[in-house]
């Protein structure tokens, strides 16, 4: 068990960043993961749930999702409009209702939980991650953010404050397919895709695999096969057969073998693309 000695309750981002500058402090939002960790060196928990970073709003060319929005908060009209409801639908299938009230979007993308489909969907939607520290605010693409482990991307003093989804993708086709042993169980393979479809020709294609390794991974070989092409059943069959072939070895986990997960990956790619045929 973790052993917090003190909780702090900042009301502003500046206050929170000041508190997080201390070497013994860490942010806590939902806390569902932090409370279950066996140990942590942090003794001061900075409760960031009172910060004004829990809203979902339109901001210039983006839809901004505050980092402390919970998974159930994604059941929001602005989010439901994005790519056939790709994001809200994916979030509604992760864990169960009480946990979705507790688990936050920011915590989930920083935690990089292997079972979560949310990072997979954010990468498929070409999202941006906004990070703030006392010194600066910077925006990373999801390609950059998920390329390396969080420890190599963020400094300890940085806080994820929002996730931006380009409004442009609102009218894209999108789908997320996941496979788990039971409906409420952790997913062992997940595919998310989004692309523009005009006169049945696909562009800006993103096909992302997840739950196979710790970070979501774009399947660029499949994206290239679809980019600029007319979507047909034959092409979908061809693309799905190639799924996972260029990925590094898919490992066995406690639920399924790597070989099995690779086969499932092909099926999910096929299903995700077939939805766009109609």
């Amino acid at each position: 068990m973790t052993n917090p000695q003190k909780f702090l309750y900042p009301k502003t981002i500046d206050e929170a960043l000041e508190m997080l500058a201390s070497p013994d402090s860490c942010p806590i939002a939902g806390g569902s993961d932090l409370s279950l960790q066996k140990s942590t060196s942090f003794t001061t928990f900075v409760d960031i749930t009172r910060l004004p970073i829990n809203g979902i709003i339109e901001k210039d060319e983006f839809i901004s999702i505050g980092a402390t929005s919970t998974f159930n908060d994604l059941d929001h009209p602005l989010v439901k409009n994005i790519a056939n409801g790709l994001l809200s639908s994916a979030a509604s299938k992760i864990m169960d209702t009480p946990l979705r009230h507790q688990v936050t979007v920011g915590g989930n993308i920083v935690g990089r939980y292997w079972w979560s489909s949310l990072p997979v969907v954010f990468l498929a939607l070409d999202g941006k991650i906004v990070l703030q520290s006392k010194e600066e605010t910077r925006t990373l693409t999801t390609d950059e953010f998920f390329e390396k482990r969080p420890v190599h991307i963020m400094s300890k003093n940085e806080l994820v404050t929002e996730i931006l989804i380009p409004k442009e993708v609102t009218n894209y086709y999108g789908d997320c397919q996941r496979f788990s042993v039971t409906e409420a169980a952790h997913s062992i393979v997940c595919i998310a895709t989004s692309f523009k479809k005009e006169s049945n020709v696909c562009s800006n294609v993103r096909i992302v695999a997840g739950n196979l390794i710790r970070s979501p991974k774009r399947l660029t070989d499949l994206e290239e096969m679809l980019e600029g092409k007319e979507l047909t059943q034959e092409l979908i069959d061809e693309i799905s057969q190639e799924a996972g072939e260029k990925l590094e070895k898919i490992r066995n986990n406690e639920i399924a073998s790597g070989e099995y997960r690779k086969e499932i990956l092909k099926v999910l790619v096929k299903r995700a693309l077939e939805g766009a045929l109609n």
């Binding site: 917090p4 909780f7 309750y9 806590i28 806390g31 569902s32 409370s35 279950l36 928990f45 409760d47 749930t49 159930n72 169960d96 209702t97 009480p98 946990l99 009230h101 507790q102």
Partner: peptide
């Protein structure tokens, strides 16, 4: 889920929530 309570009207699992998180 046997520890489920309502926090600000929403169900949460109180066994994985620090008491200090329920402040105010």
């Amino acid at each position: 889920g046997v520890c489920t309570i309502l926090l600000d009207g929403k169900t949460v699992k109180s066994c994985i929530l620090y008491a200090a998180q329920a402040h105010e």
